[in-house]
Structure formats: structure tokens, C-alpha cells
Design a protein around this nucleic acid. Structure first.
Length: 823
RNA sequence: GCCCUUGUGGCGGAAUCGGUAGACGCGUUGGACUUAAAAUCCAAUGGGGCUAAUUACCUCGUACCAGUUCAAGUCUGGUCAAGGGCACCA
């Protein structure tokens, strides 16, 4: 029996209990159906779910359930990205223990996820902050090290004072810390890096193969990797034949226009290149440059500054003597750290030349405005002039010829340069996976032997220390012995960037309990790659690029076989309220718990999918939630009122139906087709839901006819129930069981449609004159072109329009329209 | 500055291939039911015009300007606006 009223709070709990008993969400490794790996980006356990989580996980859950009904062996796991700074900050502010704080949050949020009705296989849960996970993060670090993909190096790194740690390049947004917005400083420190640059080329090239990724994300990754094709040219230093300055340029065609050369203030040979009388000025300039923070230094609006070094270099192409400058618009970490300046054809060089009254030499003819580069640089294409043997060439042609000459004469080479830098993974923080390294005075850097992993986080630490990592306060952690010589040695106190933990979690889900290795190759090869990944656009570079790198590196080490981790990527939009992002500081958040309590999870799921396509931002409205709740009541009523007519084993003779019954059969087939294709193409859940509503309206209309057929009605209602099952997971299962169904609706097969029944018998023919709609006629759907034409001309309205005019031609689009062109 | 994306009613948004613009919903208005309210149900709802009024009909309309086409929200060229990414990367 179906209850008279829809009471979600009661049925949802009961249904979830039922599913747990049935174990419908388990993924068994011995299931040999085609697999489907559906994955949401796992959350940081900050305390409570927010609506962004609800949206993300609902989308993935609907996909997973849909695929399950289609017969796939679906892997849909969940876990916790649980290392990171907020836990440590809570420890400092509230005196909490980071581990306890984190695990409490996980327990609470796990309950919320369950309340949302998500079909996760909790047996596969991973928690990155627990030793049975981070042991393998450390193990993988060691594999990277052994492969030469992890190294320690002194470098200028990004330092956030507020977070008290270094940051990766990817974590610096417009010169500020991605987490706390503090202005990032440059510091010279010895730090651990992963050699992502070794994979720059493959990471770039294989972007084009990611057909299931949005163009915007691919473009962001391409720009971040930043490939440029250029030439290195060696300029000998005048009067110092053993010394030279190599510059990197993408414009070798302008080599004859070089009027000075700039080196970065941190350039390695800068002292040798400085003459005695300029020493003091150069030293001052360098000091000043060091004081500037990233934002000031990288600001394009700031006036360019520089200082003369005093020495000169020789342009190998024409023998000209060229003055050397140091200027902070040259970056030490890109290219060679030195730039040849061509003020006539580069805006930055132009600005600098104007300021220091350096010559501007035009070498590329600007057709629109010949030989004038006095007011601004000309950066376009043109014909070379003042360029010796290369005069008259088109500049693009000249690029190759000039590079070739430099190669032939031994003062240059072609060079591909990437903007991508190596991934800095050291963090001077406590709540992360310790880097499993020991420093021995005699033996140097030693890995912690594999059998001693994990290197556990110490508990005897003082979180109140300022300016250094709390780990350094542990009395038990640091002192150890060298695994090679046995003498006293010290442990590395830095932990790993949490992005290291999250760059391989999707592999662990394939074999989460393995205590011999991070995962079994066969199992990973069975489930990888992820068929559908869903998450926020904010990870377009960070997490997604790191994961791609880690997958490729592990492939090359023989751990797995796939080239790319995520086959299809859906980046869902933000959840807004009143037009702006939900945030505590704005006070416009909506608590998922309240929605579950007041309306039920099915309403929340329905609403969050209903108004916008998943890729777009979604504006939360209370009225919208109520609308969805009303709709579910309307659906419930449909089943309640007709429960005595509904048969699960309906039988229909499709060839022998009255007009109205035939119509409902066709409407059912149309609904199945439309909903199936809208989920499969781009996951357009908003149109899926509008189709639910349309179909429900049609069924209500049908119930007003005289010859309602119980079999036809059952066919429509049972189909609707299955179509709605992936979204309204609790309600549909309750109704299914109340109607006498066995087991769970989620284990049934997705409804099929008959293509012959996906159009109506009669259709509306549109008749146009000169492209303007003039009449609509009901015609039979099997009418041929001639018949359609005849019908169109029979219309009295059309006759009136044609009257007295000449018919130029008539266009007939079968099943759609007739357009008559008249003069 | 460079690159990308998006511009459709009061609002969220629909509209395979170029083929009825505004599906579905929210909101609003009117009505039914009710002592009343809520809930529910029914109807109307892009602008303008014509008509005493209904049915109907005409006309404009998918940011703007041009073009291609029998036919343009959809294709081409240009302009503007909003959002996002990158940014002394030589």
C-alpha cells in the first residue's frame, strides 16, 4: 500500500537502511560487466558539507546510478583529502588535535553524504591522513626519487608568511597565497621538487587527445605549460673571450635590431660582467630588486628600471658592440636569464630604451606605417631591412634562416622552452605526510627503507611555535640513525604538499585495502581510467595537472598501463545565492542539513539539478526548492490515486490501441528517448527534469479520458518511476516496493524505447510564405512530400496570400514544413 | 595587453542538421474550492497594434551592425558588454 501523503523524512531513512542490507552500492572485483568508473573530487573535511559539495556529488551519483541501471559494473567511491592547513590552524586556535579534529569532521560529513542518498561503496573509502594511506604516498615519493623524478635543490621559492610555508607555483594566484591571500615573498631555500618539467612535452601534446574535457580547461593547461619555440644566441663579451652571454629569443628575425642586452638581477655571471666603476650602482640595484615582492616586481604597469653594467657584448651577426644592462624585467628562471633587446619590435624593450635613451633600430618594415618605430614598437610581421644578407625576406622565413646560420656558425641553437616549473612539494607544516628522507653527515640524503614506512607523524609537538614547523619541536622525531652507515642522522621535518596525496587517490580506490603495495596493477588496469570525473573548475590546473603527471610517471615506472587518469571531465559551476557565491562572510549560505530535514534529500537532489546545466553557475532559490517539493508531491499523488490500477506485469498489444492509449504509449517512448539521450549527452539534467514534468503532465491529461487502460497506464507509470530513479532515489524505490516490486528499483534495467513509437501519429505541418509562418495544418506523419505540398496549397489562408502573385518555388521539409516563395 | 567563454521574456533557462523562438519551471495576475487561510486545481502571462469585444489577425523581437540563404537564436565578418584564464615568459 502507498501512504496517502509523501513523507520523505520517514521513507528516506528506511530506504537507505534497505540499500545497506542489500549492499547495492558494492563494487565487486569479480564482476565482469563492462566497468564504469564515476568519480567526484573528494572533499577536504572542513566540518560540514556545503551546497557546492551537494551539487558535485549529486551529479556524479545520478551518472553512477544511471550507468548501473544500464548494466555497467560501476565503481563509485568516496574518500577524504584530509591533510592540510585548516586542521593545523584549528589546532593552534582551539587547542584541538589535528587528527581528532579531522576525524570528527569526517564522521559528521560522512553522515551527511549518506543522508543525501549517495550510492558510495564505503568499503573503498580512503583517508589520506591515515597511516595506511600516507605510507603509500611516502612509498611513491621514494619511487619518484629512485627514478630521478624527485630532487632537492636550492632555489628561489614562493614563501607565504602567514601560512609559514613555501608554496608551489600553481598555488600563487596573482602574487598572493591561494589559501590566505597573503602577498607571497621570494626566498632562497633548499626544497624538494618533483620533475614535472620532464613531462612538459607529453602533458602538452596529449591534451589534444582529451576529447572528454572542456576546451576551457584544456586551454588553461596549455597556457600554463606555456610552450614557446625559440633560439639561443651566444653573445661574446668584448675583451673577455672566455666569457659570453647567451640569450633566449622567440624573435631571431630581429637579431639585427638588437641595441642592448639585459640580464636578470640574479644572473649568475653578473659580477664578472660588471666593471669596477659600475659596481656600486649594480650592487644597489640588485639589493633593491630583492626587496620587491612578486606583485610589485611583476606589475606590468610599473615603470621599467635597470642599471648599466659597463661591459659590452658583440652581436655575432654584425659585429656590433652592444651595452649590457641588468633589469628586473628579465626573469632569472626563464630561458637563459638574459634577453636581447630590440626596442623597435618589442614593447618592453621599447619602454626601457625610451627611458634610458638607447637607440631604436628598425629591422622589420611595417607596411602601414613604414620605418616609424619612434612612438611605439612594431610587433607585427613584415619584410626585413637593415639586416645584412637577410634583407628582403619575410620575417617568418627569416626566423628559420637566421637560426640555421647561428647553428652552422656555432653561436646558437634552436630551443623549445616551457613556462612550467618543477613542482615544489616541501611544506614547512605539521599536518601532512612526512617526506621519508634521512640526512646523514657522511652519506648525505638517504631514503627511509621501505620496510620502515610509514614515517609516522609525531604526536609530541608544540603547535604554538612561530616561524618554523611544529614538527621541529618533537623530541622523538628528528634524531635517528643513517640507514646506510648506522651513525646518528636527522630526519627531514618537511611534509608533502597535500596535492601529492590527492594526485593518486583515484588509483587507491581500485585496491583500497592492499597492505603490500599502493595498489595492484591488474586491478588498476581493470578500473582505470576514470570514465567520468566531476569537480570544480578551480582545479583546472593544480590537481588535474599533477594527477596527469603522476599517472604518466607511474606508467613509466610500470605501476599501471593508462596514459591519462581522467577520460571525461565535467567541471560543474558554482552554487550562488542572490547572484553571488555562497560564503559565510556574506551570510548567504544554505545549510544542506536544513534542506534534508525540511524537504528531504530527494527534493534537494532534484532541485540542485533542475535549473541550470551542470557546467553553469546555479542560483539557489528557496522558491525553487518548494517548487520541487510540490512536484514530488504531485508525482506521489499520481501513484497513490492509481495504485489499484497499476500492475508491474502489464501487457500491451501495441497494434490494437485506441487513439488516446496509443498517444500515451508514444509519449512514454518519447520521454524515455529524450531522457536517455539528455543524460548521455553532456548530462543535461535540467532538461531531463523538465521532461519528467512534461511527462507527468501528460499522464494527468491522459487520466481525464474515458477509456483509460490499466496496462497502458502502468506502462507509463512504471517507466516514469525508473526514469526518475537515479535522481529521486528514495521516493521511487519506496513507490516501487509499495506497488509490490521485489528488491530495489536501482537494480532494475533502464527502460528501453522503440524508435517506431517515438513520434506522434499526427504532426503539425508549418506552412510558410517567404519564410514567414502563415498557417499550421495537422497532417498524418506518413504523408509524403507531394501530399504535404497539396495540403499546404489547399489552405484557405495560404490561397489568400498567394492570390495574384507568382510562385517562384516551393520547399518541402519532410515532417516539418512547406515554404512557398512568391513574388 | 593577449587568449577563451557567454549575451534569448520579470527570472532560471529550452530550441539534433539553419526549419513554428520562448519547452519546462519560478514569479505575477485572475478564477474555482474554503467561513477564512494554506494546500490543490483551472486560466492568462515577450513588446506593440487592430477590434466595442471574443475567436482571429498584423507587426516588431534572441546584445548591436552588416552579409549568406527560400529560411538565421543557430552560419560568416565587424562592434559592444559581462565573466574567466594568462600576463615584463623575451
Amino acid at each position: 500500500m502507498i501512504d496517502k501523503l509523501y513523507f520523505p523524512q520517514k521513507i528516506e531513512k528506511a530506504q537507505r537502511k534497505f540499500w545497506e542490507e542489500l549492499k547495492i552500492s558494492r563494487t565487486l572485483d569479480n564482476n565482469n560487466n563492462p566497468k564504469f568508473y564515476a568519480l567526484s573530487m573528494f572533499p577536504y573535511p572542513s566540518g560540514k558539507l556545503h551546497m557546492g559539495h551537494v551539487r558535485n556529488y549529486t551529479i556524479t551519483d545520478v551518472i553512477a546510478r544511471f550507468k548501473k541501471m544500464q548494466g555497467y559494473n560501476v565503481l563509485h567511491p568516496m574518500g577524504w583529502d584530509s591533510f592540510g592547513l585548516p586542521a593545523e590552524n584549528a589546532a593552534i586556535q582551539k587547542g584541538a588535535n589535528p587528527k581528532e579534529w579531522t576525524l570528527n569532521n569526517i564522521a559528521y560529513m560522512k553522515e551527511q553524504l549518506k543522508n543525501l542518498g549517495l550510492m558510495y561503496d564505503w568499503e573503498r573509502e580512503v583517508t589520506t591522513c591515515l597511516p595506511d594511506y600516507y605510507k603509500w604516498t611516502q612509498y611513491l615519493f621514494e619511487q619518484f626519487y629512485k627514478k630521478g623524478l624527485a630532487y632537492k635543490s636550492e632555489a628561489a621559492v614562493n614563501w607565504c608568511n602567514k601560512c609559514g610555508t613555501v608554496l608551489a607555483n600553481e598555488q600563487v594566484i596573482e602574487g598572493r597565497c591561494w589559501r590566505c591571500d597573503e602577498i607571497v615573498e621570494k626566498k632562497y631555500l633548499s626544497q624538494w621538487f618533483l620533475k614535472i618539467t620532464d613531462y612538459a612535452e607529453e602533458l602538452l601534446d596529449s591534451i589534444d587527445k582529451l576529447d572528454g574535457w572542456g576546451e576551457n580547461v584544456k586551454l588553461m593547461q596549455k597556457n600554463w605549460i606555456g610552450k614557446s619555440k625559440g633560439t639561443i644566441v651566444e653573445f661574446k663579451v668584448k675583451d673577455k673571450s672566455d666569457l659570453s652571454v647567451k640569450v633566449y629569443t622567440t624573435r631571431p628575425d630581429t637579431i639585427y635590431g638588437v641595441t642592448y642586452v639585459v640580464v636578470a638581477p640574479e644572473y649568475k655571471d653578473i659580477e664578472k660582467l660588471t666593471t669596477d666603476e659600475n659596481k656600486e650602482a649594480v650592487e644597489n640595484y640588485r639589493k633593491n630588486a630583492r626587496r620587491l615582492n612578486e606583485i610589485e616586481r611583476l606589475s606590468t604597469t610599473r615603470e621599467k628600471t635597470g642599471v648599466k653594467l659597463g661591459s659590452f657584448v658583440i652581436n655575432p651577426f654584425n659585429g656590433e658592440e652592444i651595452p649590457l644592462y641588468a633589469a628586473d624585467y628579465a626573469l632569472v628562471e626563464y630561458g637563459t636569464g638574459a634577453v636581447m633587446a630590440v626596442p623597435a619590435h618589442d614593447e618592453r624593450d621599447f619602454d626601457f630604451a625610451k627611458k634610458y635613451s638607447l637607440p631604436i633600430k628598425v629591422v622589420i618594415q611595417n607596411r602601414d606605417n613604414p620605418n616609424d618605430c619612434q612612438l611605439e614598437a612594431y610587433t607585427g610581421d613584415g619584410i626585413l631591412i637593415n639586416s645584412g644578407e637577410f634583407n628582403g625576406l619575410n620575417n617568418n622565413e627569416a626566423k628559420e634562416k637566421i637560426t640555421q646560420k647561428a647553428i652552422n656558425e656555432g653561436f646558437g641553437e634552436a630551443k623549445i622552452q616551457y613556462r612550467l616549473r618543477d613542482w615544489l612539494i616541501s611544506r614547512q607544516r605539521y599536518w601532512g605526510a612526512p617526506i621519508p628522507v634521512i640526512y646523514c653527515e657522511d652519506c648525505g640524503i638517504q631514503l627511509v627503507p621501505e620496510e620502515q614506512l610509514p614515517v609516522l607523524l609525531p604526536e609530541d609537538v608544540d603547535f604554538s611555535v612561530v616561524g618554523r614547523s611544529p614538527i621541529t619541536t618533537s623530541k622523538t622525531f628528528i634524531d635517528t640513525t643513517c640507514p646506510k652507515c648506522g651513525k646518528k642522522a636527522k630526519r627531514e621535518t618537511d611534509t608533502m604538499d597535500t596535492f601529492m596525496c590527492s594526485s593518486w587517490y583515484y588509483l587507491r580506490y581500485c585496491d583500497p585495502k592492499n597492505d603490500k603495495k599502493p595498489f595492484d596493477k591488474e586491478l588498476v588496469d581493470k578500473y582505470m581510467n576514470v570514465d567520468q570525473y566531476v569537480g570544480g573548475i578551480e582545479h583546472a590546473i593544480l590537481h588535474l595537472l599533477y594527477s596527469r603527471f603522476v599517472t604518466k610517471a607511474l606508467r613509466d615506472m610500470g605501476f599501471l598501463s593508462c596514459d591519462e587518469p581522467f577520460k571525461n571531465l565535467l567541471t560543474q559551476g558554482m552554487v550562488l545565492k542572490d547572484g553571488s557565491k555562497m560564503s559565510k562572510s556574506k551570510g548567504n549560505t544554505v545549510d544542506p542539513d536544513e534542506i534534508f530535514e525540511n524537504f528531504g534529500a530527494d527534493t534537494a537532489r532534484l532541485f540542485i539539478l533542475s535549473d541550470s546545466p551542470p557546467q553553469r553557475d546555479f542560483d539557489w532559490s528557496d522558491a525553487g526548492v518548494e517548487g520541487c517539493s510540490k512536484f514530488l508531491n504531485r508525482v506521489w499523488k499520481l501513484y497513490y490515486q492509481n495504485q489499484n490500477r497499476i500492475k508491474l506485469d502489464y501487457k500491451i498489444d501495441f497494434n490494437n490501441l485506441s487513439k488516446d492509449n496509443d498517444k500515451l504509449v508514444r509519449l512514454t517512448n518519447i520521454a524515455i528517448k529524450k531522457i536517455t539521450s539528455d543524460i548521455e549527452n553532456e548530462f543535461q539534467f535540467n532538461t531531463v527534469i523538465s521532461k519528467y514534468r512534461e511527462f507527468v503532465n501528460s499522464i494527468y491529461d491522459y487520466l481525464n479520458i474515458n477509456d483509460v487502460d490499466d496496462n497502458v497506464l502502468s506502462y507509463a507509470l512504471i517507466s516514469l518511476l525508473k526514469l526518475m530513479a537515479p535522481v529521486c532515489v528514495h521516493m521511487t524505490d519506496q513507490l516501487y516496493q509499495d506497488l509490490g516490486g521485489n528488491g530495489s528499483i536501482h537494480e532494475l534495467e533502464w527502460p528501453k524505447y522503440d524508435d517506431k513509437l517515438t513520434q506522434m501519429n499526427d504532426l503539425t505541418l508549418v506552412v510558410m510564405i517567404n519564410g514567414k509562418l502563415r498557417d499550421k495544418i495537422i497532417v498524418s506523419s506518413d504523408a509524403n512530400e507531394e501530399e504535404l505540398k497539396d495540403k499546404a496549397f489547399e489552405s484557405s489562408k495560404i490561397k489568400e496570400f498567394i492570390n495574384g502573385k507568382t510562385i517562384v518555388k516551393t520547399i518541402v521539409v519532410p515532417k516539418k514544413l512547406v515554404n512557398i516563395v512568391i513574388k
